[in-house]
Design a protein around this nucleic acid. Sequence first.
DNA 1: GTAACCAGTTACCTTAAAGTAAGTGCTTTA
DNA 2: TAAAGCACTTACTTTAAGGTAACTGGTTAC
Lengths: 125, 125
Amino acid sequence: MKTVLHGGCGETATELHTDCHKVIMPVRDALDVISGKWKLPIIIAVSRGHKRFRDIERSIPKITSKVLSKELKDLEAHKLVKRTVYDSQPVSVEYTLTAYADTLDSVINALQQWGLQHRKKIIGK
Amino acid sequence: MKTVLHGGCGETATELHTDCHKVIMPVRDALDVISGKWKLPIIIAVSRGHKRFRDIERSIPKITSKVLSKELKDLEAHKLVKRTVYDSQPVSVEYTLTAYADTLDSVINALQQWGLQHRKKIIGK
DNA sequence: GTAACCAGTTACCTTAAAGTAAGTGCTTTA
DNA sequence: TAAAGCACTTACTTTAAGGTAACTGGTTAC
């Protein structure tokens, strides 16, 4: 995993630019972690109680095991998801959200609300 | 532009899945519109008062005119940005946010806040 | 009159994300 | 004992996003 934080640019910054960058940089940092088609859907699925690999897979339309496997590893590396192996018979694996993932709640809520009204706007016209 | 809304999947839905999809689908609808490296940075730049093409270009580190041109068209198609041509001498072009784009405020704020604390967490360790 | 600014466009190329399909090793159920 | 479930992996291909660089056609400032 590459962890990137977005820093300044090489240019002479005007007041407007400086102000602007103060918003753009953190937003890009956040997008680096959560953007892509699958990361938020996976976080949502796990937060709703889907803990097992196949269970998560079934709860997210169209996802494949290959993609799920890869994204879960990314999320684990970002400390958003915890993977626990229980050596029962047979061995079972559980994925849970970390406390850190809970801090994404406001982001998910904002996106959900916006997505809902966007859908209404699209359908309603 | 393709406008996609995420609908149900073909499977028999359990209670958990139904609940889960109610969150996943709108989030994916929202991500379809705003994800990618450049859309939110552009919206932020325009909202901060950068109206002219070259001005926006300069305010966003590393963006190129090709990408900016394409993304502005996308945003216009999604009714988030308005392009106005003034036939002064020489002709000037201005980009402004629509009222609809203002509804993204809570999304941008949530991402900015999360990005800031994420940056602190990464640097602080 | 030439250099620079504006608002882009064009062609080409690289990389990363995602999709397709099949297979692995293990276990439990019918 | 054959089928199906679990948790994945591997190999290959397609698609989309983004980057590089040059160029257009107009305008204005030096």
